[in-house]
Amino acid sequence: MTGDLVFILLALLTIVPAVWVVFSPNIVHAGFALLFTLFGVAGLYAYMGADYIAVTQLMVYIGGVLVLVLFTVMMTRVPQGKRANYGLDRFVPAGVLSLAVFGLLYKTITSVDWGAGHTEPVPTVAEIGTNFMTNYIFPFEYVSLVLLVAMIGAAILIRENKNTQDEPENGESEVQS
């Protein structure tokens, strides 16, 4: 009983902020709503007994990605008056499509016999760690490579080119072109 209640709470914690993420006009609000969603997802992981994943989610997603997102949100703020209006035209097709996708997925979920069964959750950290080093060593290394490339790429993207500095910024009188 309490398990169900916990589940429902976790579900709500996941879904409701997600809705706010989608519909909120204020991007900062959306960012913070995303925080809650991610929390909810971590909770769901924990509920399913995936302890390692839950913690990884908290650390990486919330502690890394979300922070990054929020940083970027802050850095790319435009003055208040220049916000573009929403317009309804894009909501309709998007909404229709989303609903259709959801409907499709839901149909799939309910009409297929997944052969699910209950087991007791067990600690997974040791097993995951072992698998990382044995069965999934290659993906592990590849992913680290990908991370490296991503970092380099992001650094390059961020780099300030000489070409993009046409106008002298305030405060800096001498700009080398």
């Binding site: 989608v22 969603t37 499509l97 989303s98 979920i109």
Partner: peptide
């Protein structure tokens, strides 16, 4: 199914966010 439903809802929402 419950988890799958949640994930479907989340996915749909995410799709909606991307498109709109």
């Amino acid at each position: 199914p419950h988890f799958l439903t949640i994930s479907a809802a989340l996915f749909a929402l995410g799709l909606f966010a991307v498109m709109s």
